[in-house]
Design a protein around this nucleic acid. Structure first.
Length: 360
DNA sequence: CAGACGTGGAG
DNA sequence: TCTCCAAGTCT
């Protein structure tokens, strides 16, 4: 066994965090944990994981779950396609494998939402198959240990990282090995300030020798963020003897927050004046009946990785109509119903601030 | 295959 | 305030 792998395995036995998904070898549970932890910190994902596997403890229960309910469980975690794909993947496993998560890397790779990383993680951690895991942690650790200067998010850098990762793999205990590599990256070989004084393999580390550990891993520069203006129409209605309700719609298509709910949206290239906004909103409002404009909550920025969304909220009140016909896609929701629907953080905040929904 | 997809915490 | 980024995947 490679001395680096051996030392990291020893370190792992001593220092790894006791996390719930490490208490099991159930492939479904490990699958859920891997998906939740994608691009997500342990302390942010932990509660979500516990709630998720408590609600849906096995593949069959998840496969039978309601779509909105799954999205609701994911609310606030971000990257919501993970939830959609995990659900689709569970249904796929029920259909194709009678609910038994396959142990084979290639079969795993064909399941919706399972890519190279997750397939390798499930195969090695749940089934102890000798497959190499390369995630962000592993890439960082190895780019430093071997002073790989190629950007780790380039095809060539990825190739180099994977090559050394494969050489290090402990084929007798691949699950422990892969977790040790990741845990070491998460606790010691940190992105900003690696704890080289606590490092058990620094004598093998080329970056440390060259004192370039803080410069690695190198990454390709990313695109500047796009600015978008989201003008939400908060259309409230108060009918006789009924709780107040508000109009919402579900987002679809190839864009941010697919599958989540929102208020009817008018997107613009720049900030809109009240007059412009009203003009654009009038066609919809007129279909709904008599209305009057209420206050407007000025644009507040919502910062995402690749977008900066300037959101404003424009309130309107509908005259309780005799027979309101809702354009397709729109639905009315009272407070109780709002609490059942999944919303992006931006909307969730608005609902909370306006006492329309309780914050999780 | 480059670009898109969220959120909250750290420096 | 601003930038970076955390157990990636899909198209």
């Amino acid at each position: 066994m490679n001395p680096i792998s051996s030392q990291l395995a020893d370190w792992y036995q001593l220092h790894h965090r006791p996390l719930p998904w490490r208490e099991t070898s159930d492939p479904y549970t490990i699958w859920v944990s891997e998906v939740i932890l994608q691009q997500t910190r342990v302390d942010q994902g932990l509660e979500y994981f516990l709630r998720f596997v408590s609600k849906w403890p096995d593949v069959h229960s998840l496969a039978n779950a309601d779509d909105d309910e799954v999205m609701k469980m994911w609310q606030g975690l971000g990257y919501y396609s993970r939830a959609r794909n995990l659900l689709a993947g569970a249904r796929q496993v029920v259909k194709e494998y009678d609910g038994a998560v396959p142990s084979d890397y290639v079969k795993l790779l064909k399941i919706k939402g399972i890519g190279k990383y997750t397939a390798a993680a499930i195969a090695s951690i749940a089934f102890n198959n000798p497959v190499t895991v390369v995630d962000g942690n592993v890439a960082r650790v190895l780019s430093r240990l071997f002073a790989i200067k190629e950007p780790v998010n380039s095809p060539e850098g990825e190739r180099q990282v994977h090559a050394v990762a494969r050489d290090l793999l402990d084929t007798h205990n691949p699950g422990r090995h892969n977790q040790a590599m990741m845990e070491f990256g998460a606790l010691v070989c940190l992105p900003r300030s690696p704890k080289c004084n606590e490092c058990v393999v620094y004598q093998h580390c080329h970056a440390h020798k060259l004192d370039i550990q803080k410069l690695l891993p190198s990454k390709k520069p990313k695109k500047p963020v796009r600015v978008r203006w989201f003008n939400y129409l908060v259309i409230r209605m108060q009918s006789e003897g009924k709780p107040e309700s508000v109009l919402i719609e579900k987002r679809h298509g190839d864009d941010i927050w697919n599958g989540m709910y929102q208020f009817p949206l008018i997107e613009s290239e720049a900030e809109l004046s009240s007059a412009e906004l009203t003009k654009l909103a009038t066609p919809l409002l007129d279909v709904l009946g008599q209305w009057k404009a209420g206050p407007r909550l000025q644009a507040r920025p919502h910062q995402l990785t690749h977008q900066r969304i300037m959101a404003s909220f424009h309130e309107f009140t509908l005259h309780p109509g005799v027979d309101i016909r809702l354009p397709n896609g729109l639905s009315l929701a009272n407070t109780e119903q709002l609490n059942q629907k999944p919303f992006p953080r931006l909307i969730e905040w608005y609902l909370y601030e306006n006492n329309m929904q309780t914050l999780d």
